[in-house]
Write a protein that binds this DNA or RNA. Structure first.
Lengths: 316, 316
DNA sequence: CACAATTAGTTGATTTTGTCAACTAATTTA
DNA sequence: TAAATTAGTTGACAAAATCAACTAATTGTG
């Protein structure tokens, strides 16, 4: 990056900071017309979030004056929002905890915050809202904030191809395999070919492509393609690294298997290589058995191309 | 979107708000250890940014007490940061302007803000930094902030296909044409086919694909494909709606034409439809002439397929 | 056109918010 | 065991923000 580009980029972030400061309405000292100041609410939040924290813990987290904090806490105690539990191992400190009343206040504040957020999102389509969330998660994830791990509940699994999906499937395959196995352009070309070959025969009644998205961002995918005579091929099974370890692979595999059962496929097969170890585990767990392994030079790599097969239990 | 998903999404944004409040260090009332408070700096910034604004303008923009602002401004005037120009048409108001000293203070603050931003980006790769900027722009753009229009200086034009580029080209074509002309999956299939057809013959010495990216996000693209006997085809020329009107199409076209000249192509042609009016303008400006127009039923649409040709000036 | 109503900005009085330094008491270090 | 450190408290005070009463210019209205 040239110095000019870096300066442009920093100016851009500075603008975002100003914009977002405005958006948050952080200049108002009384949050959401409550009787509590921003600082007070931040203390309440800190007590709630870091359970079993002490005054010093809060002081360090929020970087506020010890004397000021002392008074704030005494006030909260007087109002019955916070309760102190003296520490047995240190007579100077106390654990802090929200009372039921304090938690109720928190909940109220969250509600008001939600109102603010809803206003912010007003006039946006569902897709755009997802994009906002997604972009925020990206900022937060990149700036190494805690809690950046996506949750399975936030991942939406849908099927059917919408505009951009075909390209997105290819893009994610190209990027992930380049990053993880140093596959080159030839691999992305291969994926393009598989989709080009599939699309003209795509029959939504017999073929199904599932896309897992998280706030609009493609998180993973899987597909079942009918091959005639009760056979089907499982394709394009991939979970992006950031979304691994949350059970998404399993969820997608379950969708695919459920579809295979309703379609009464007798046999499902798939092709992969010996390098895709994590996926292989999921194949085996789903009942697939490795039936062939042949050395190949594919996409500039020496790999074993492997074939897995699954005999479906014939329901009666 | 189900109510549960909406709640999850709002909770997610709330978390981002808390995270970013923290990130900005907005609880500190003295910005960057200066002798000025956050509010004071926001006033200075507002005077700088909205030139020829009045006290009321600032009061409305920042939503602060009129009396408080009055005192702040008097103080700034006393310190020689701001100057008042009485309004001829209204004896009660004055235009506000930063003095040279006030602008110097602004610049200093920007520098300190830049330091903060650099710290924030510390430890990120160039690509990750671009992603942060990109994601912020997306948030800002979606939440309809002013100044959301990207700048041509922030757009990087590169050539050569990197992992994910092929998929991204297809994805953007699919999405943009679906949004603007209601083309369906068949169009994305067609684009996939064109790339599938091109890739095996791709010769970086004779073919060139340019990608315009803005903080990591694909903004537009163009390609020149050699066809033998001094002929070449211009393909995949597209600017995403958000990046139109900033001269990006022109810049990409110039790159392409310059390449055609160095390659000494005698003739360049392209295929498009009568629906792509904006692009057609750029083709004509670059010297292309429409040579054929045939009615077709393509991708579920009745269109005229048009052919444009450009005879290259033979340099000696 | 005159007079009431409104608007832009100012000023005094006051409250809220945050800071600093001196302090106590418990705990740790030397 | 004494000195140093740490957690938290308190008093004095400064800075930031609010409220209400005010002036002067401008606008609206009968």
């Amino acid at each position: 990056m040239t110095p000019e580009q870096e300066a442009a980029m920093i100016a851009n972030i500075r603008q975002f900071n100003r914009f977002y400061t405005m958006q948050l309405g952080l200049l108002q000292q009384h949050v959401f017309d409550s009787e509590y100041s921003l600082t007070e609410m931040r203390v309440i939040y800190e007590v709630h979030f870091n359970h079993q924290t002490t005054a010093t813990g809060i002081r360090e987290a929020l970087n506020i004056d010890a004397g000021y904090l002392s008074r704030l806490l005494r006030n909260f105690e007087k109002k019955g929002l916070v309760i102190k539990h003296p520490l047995p191992e240190d007579g100077r400190s106390s654990y802090l905890q929200l009372t039921a009343r304090g938690r109720k206040l928190m909940a109220q504040m969250n509600e008001r915050s939600d109102v603010q957020i809803r206003q912010m999102l007003e006039g946006l389509t569902a897709q755009q809202r997802r994009q906002v969330g997604n972009a925020m998660n990206r900022v937060r994830g990149l700036l190494k904030a805690p809690g950046g791990q996506p949750r399975l509940e936030d991942v939406e699994i849908r099927h059917g191809l919408q505009p951009g999906d075909v390209g997105d499937i290819i893009r994610v395959h190209g990027q992930v395999y380049a990053e993880e196995y140093q596959y080159d352009l030839r691999f992305e070309q291969y994926v393009t070919e598989t989709l080009h070959e599939f699309l003209p025969t795509y029959n939504p009644a017999k073929d199904r492509v599932w896309l897992a998205t998280c706030f609009g961002e493609l998180a993973g995918m899987i597909a079942i393609i009918h091959k005639g005579r009760g056979r089907a091929q499982l394709r394009w099974f991939l979970i992006r690294p950031a979304f691994r370890g949350i059970g998404l692979g399993k969820a997608l595999m379950q969708e695919a298997m459920a579809f295979c059962r309703t379609q009464r496929f007798r046999e499902v097969y798939l092709l992969t290589t010996n390098q895709q170890q994590t996926a292989a585990g999921l194949y085996v767990k789903a009942g697939f058995v490795k039936t062939a392994s042949t050395p190949q030079h594919l996409w500039g790599q020496d790999v074993y191309e492997e074939r897995y097969e699954l005999k479906m239990p014939t329901g009666n």
